[in-house]
Design a protein around this nucleic acid. Sequence first.
DNA 1: CCATTAATAGGCG
DNA 2: CGCCTATTAATGG
Length: 215
Amino acid sequence: MKKHSAVACIGQAGLFAQLPEEDLTKIAPISTHQEYFPKGSIIRQPGDGKDGLIFLDQGSAKIYSLNEAGKETVLGVLNKGDLDGQQNLFQDNHEENFVQALQDTYVCSINRRDFQDLLKKTPDLAINMLNNFGEKLVAIETKSIRRNSMSAKDRLLAYLEDLAKKQGRRDVQLKLKKKDLASYLGVTPETLSRQLKKLAKENRIKLSGRKIILL
DNA sequence: CCATTAATAGGCG
DNA sequence: CGCCTATTAATGG
C-alpha cells in the first residue's frame, strides 16, 4: 500500500478530476480517508447513519438492495476511482442501499453537510456534479432500455461489450460473481450460465472462469 | 479435510 | 424464461 495523499485521492475521482488544485485542497479537510474494508464486509447499509458520498480509493464493491423476501438485487458495481452516494449529498433520502466490498477495499468519504457547504463556495464543483449526474442518468436509461427490450442473451452481450470498452480490452475480467451479474442483468443465474454457454458455442465469446474474451 | 457457497445441468411449466 | 432439484466445483476455515 502506497502513501495516501488526501488531495491526490480526491483528484482521482472523475467528479473532482478537473478541478483546480486549489479546490481540491478545500475538499481535502472535509473528507475521511482510507477506511479499510476487508473483502465481503459491508461498507454502507440502510440506517447506518452514514449519509455522505463514498469514493473507492482501492478495490471494488457492489451496490445492492434487498426486497421484502430477502432477495438481493444488484444495482451496480463500484471500481477503483468510482464514487457513489451523490444523491445523498443533496437530500436526506432514505432509500439507501447496501454496499459491500468485493475485495479488500479502501474507501474515502465526504459528509453530506460539509459537502453542501463547500458546493456553495465552489461553482466549478457544482458544474462537475451536474455533468456527472448526466452520465449517470444515461447509464441508468441504457440499462432500463436493455432490460425492457432486449433478450437475455443480447443484454448479456451488450453488457460485456460495455465492459470491454470501459476496460479498453477484449478480454474482460468479471468483478461480480456470476450470480451477482445475473441479478444485475435481471436474469436468474441459470439463465446467465446458459446464455454464456450459447455465446461460447456461437464463437462470439470465449470463457475461462471469470475472464471472458470477446471475439 | 469438512462445510458452506457458487456454478452448472436437466426437467418442467 | 423462471423455478426447482441434483450434482459438481470453488472457497474458506
